[in-house]
Nucleic acid binder design. Structure first.
Length: 535
DNA sequence: CGTCTTTGACCTGCGC
DNA sequence: GCGCAGGTCAAAGACG
């Protein structure tokens, strides 16, 4: 795992740069400072400082080592952990002369030597980083040029065909029009680098649901931005699952609609074991339909968010045909209203997943995470847990929380006993759990406002890990949170769902603004405001 | 009485 | 063009 994390660390160096200003919410002051644990574990801040100072230890594949390097390179032994490490190192190397002064001198010399060595190493790594960045830019430029050439060639060929076939002017115009997409695609590539805007072909529909009825896709996405929410209102809600629905925002301009489509169509599916007939995820839902889906003896229930009038978020709940114990929930749409903390936690997780999905190419027919692990290097889910699929009409990410993947790949400690029934494969439950835990054990709030996509994932992972590492009572708190989520709420959705549980938990139950999850700088993503949990 | 669930009908798109 | 399947609507019933 170390190696893996090391790679991720490098790939997301940018995330680290942005991670620093992740202060806990003001209203949770008691939790402040504990977000990364006590003073013995606050790498993020130090790393940021380090980067801002022009160093580059993050290239080091060993995260632990890089932290120490960082501490050393700053010539500061004030950090308790760093200092302790060095002293212990030296104490082991120094001979027991009994002379404190000579020992001290020896230590100092060794420390200086180590400092120099690390400094050199840092410089080397920095130069490597620069080189890599240059190479990347060069390759990018070459790619763009190649694409433009290709487009130009196509254009020329078509014109030639045009001339030879003596086609009518009308046809020519049409052909020129047809070329647009190609050129636009190139432009998009350029733009993407600048704005990181998601450009997903507006696919139509819902095959996902039918073809993969065994594991509904649940993308809680708020894929759309707030503007969309405001504009769409009820109309947007009609888009769920019903790509075929003609009611789909007839009032909106075609372009605008297309622009919104990608976000709205992306889905996140969550598979989790739950005996409860339905799930409670921090939001209020109203069941508006139920259908028998082909290939599954269990009916599929359709829910609509009722926390706010006109909230376009829908969800589908269905049991897995193979294993009735598995509850599959699919989310789509954006909440246009504030969410309870617990809901927000999961919403960010799922939206991050969706963002990951949407930020990738939907042209691939492959399951991205599975076939190309490097494609979404920041995806926190093991590929077998989080599956990205672009083959379906909707870009879909499936979070499989039913498998016994070892969540400790990211967690430094064994999973709590309470995860026996809930595999707790990280982000899905973990994020939500953390939301609960935050309230029950005053852990720092999850960094949900952080800009940057991968950063969001990385920070989530780190926050969870840090929280666990820093608080020995995590297991107990997690158990409490689990019991709150699982045992507290009645199976029936509605006002008595998680919301109540959360309200009970949080004296300062602060509802976050709907746009809270939007990531500036990230593909204006589905800031998903959907949450997930099981009763 | 108000709210929510149930359930059959309806609408739409897709595939043959 | 027709049938199928998914999604939504809305009336009726249940529940607190």
């Amino acid at each position: 795992m170390d190696g893996q994390r090391g790679e991720l660390t490098f790939l997301h160096s940018r995330d680290f740069l942005r991670r620093s200003p992740a202060p806990p919410p003001a209203d949770d002051g008691a939790a402040a400072g504990s977000s990364h644990g006590p003073s013995d574990s606050k790498p993020p801040i130090r790393e940021v400082d380090f980067f801002s100072s022009g160093n580059c230890s993050k290239l080091n594949s060993d995260e632990e080592e890089s932290k120490d390097c960082h501490g050393l390179s700053r010539s500061t032994l004030s950090d308790p952990r760093t200092g302790l490490n060095l002293l212990s190192l030296n104490s082991g190397m120094a001979t027991a002369t009994g002379d404190d002064c000579s020992n001290h001198d020896t230590e100092m010399r060794m420390l200086r030597g180590e400092l120099d060595r690390l400094h050199e190493e840092n410089c080397k790594l920095k130069s490597m980083l620069d080189q890599i960045a240059k190479s990347y830019n060069n390759l990018q430029a070459q790619l763009l040029m190649a694409m433009q050439k290709q487009a130009h060639l196509n254009h020329s060929e078509q014109q030639r065909d045009e001339m030879t076939s003596m086609s009518s002017p009308t046809k020519s115009a049409q052909q020129l029009m047809d070329l647009r997409p190609a050129c636009a695609a190139i432009d998009n590539v350029k733009e993407e680098e600048k704005t990181r805007e998601v450009s997903v072909s507006p696919t139509t529909t819902m095959e996902v649901m039918s073809k993969e009825s065994d594991h509904i896709h649940t993308p809680p996405l708020n894929g759309t931005n707030n503007n969309h929410n405001i504009e769409d209102g009820d109309r947007a809600s009609e888009s769920w699952g019903s790509p075929k629905s003609p009611r789909l925002e007839p009032s909106k301009g075609g372009e605008e609609q297309l622009a919104d489509m990608p976000f709205r169509k992306a889905r996140v599916s969550v598979r989790a074991r739950s005996e409860a007939p339905s799930i409670s995820d921090g939001c209020q839902w109203r069941k508006y339909g139920q259908k028998m889906a082909k290939g599954n003896p269990c009916p599929r229930a359709y829910y609509r968010c009722t926390m706010a009038v006109g909230c376009p978020v829908r969800k589908q709940v269905q049991r897995c045909a193979d294993d009735k114990a598995i509850l599959i929930t699919t989310y789509e749409g954006n909440h246009n209203h504030p969410l309870p903390p617990a809901a927000t936690a999961m919403a960010n997780t799922t939206s991050a997943a969706a963002a990951m999905l949407l930020s990738g190419s939907t042209t691939s027919k492959e399951t991205l995470a599975s076939t190309n692990p490097g494609y979404f290097p920041s995806l926190p889910y093991p590929s077998t847990i989080a599956t990205l699929s672009a083959s379906a009409p909707f870009p879909t990410i499936t979070l499989d929380l039913t498998q016994n993947h070892n969540p400790m790949q990211l967690f430094p400690r064994p999973p709590p006993q309470t995860s026996a029934t809930f595999p707790l494969p990280l982000h899905g439950y973990a994020a939500q759990m953390m939301g609960q835990v935050q309230h029950s054990m005053k852990l720092p709030a999850m960094p949900m406002l952080q800009p940057g996509l991968g950063q969001r994932h990385a920070s989530l992972v780190e926050s969870v890990s840090a929280a666990i590492a820093s608080d020995p009572n995590f297991t107990a708190a997690l158990a409490a949170a689990l019991s709150t989520v699982m045992g507290g709420a009645p199976p029936r959705n509605g006002p008595d769902g998680n919301i109540n549980a959360n309200n009970n938990n949080s004296g300062n139950n602060h509802f976050l603004p709907a746009g809270v999850g939007v990531l500036p700088g990230s593909p204006q993503l589905p800031q998903s405001c959907t949450t997930f949990s099981t009763n």
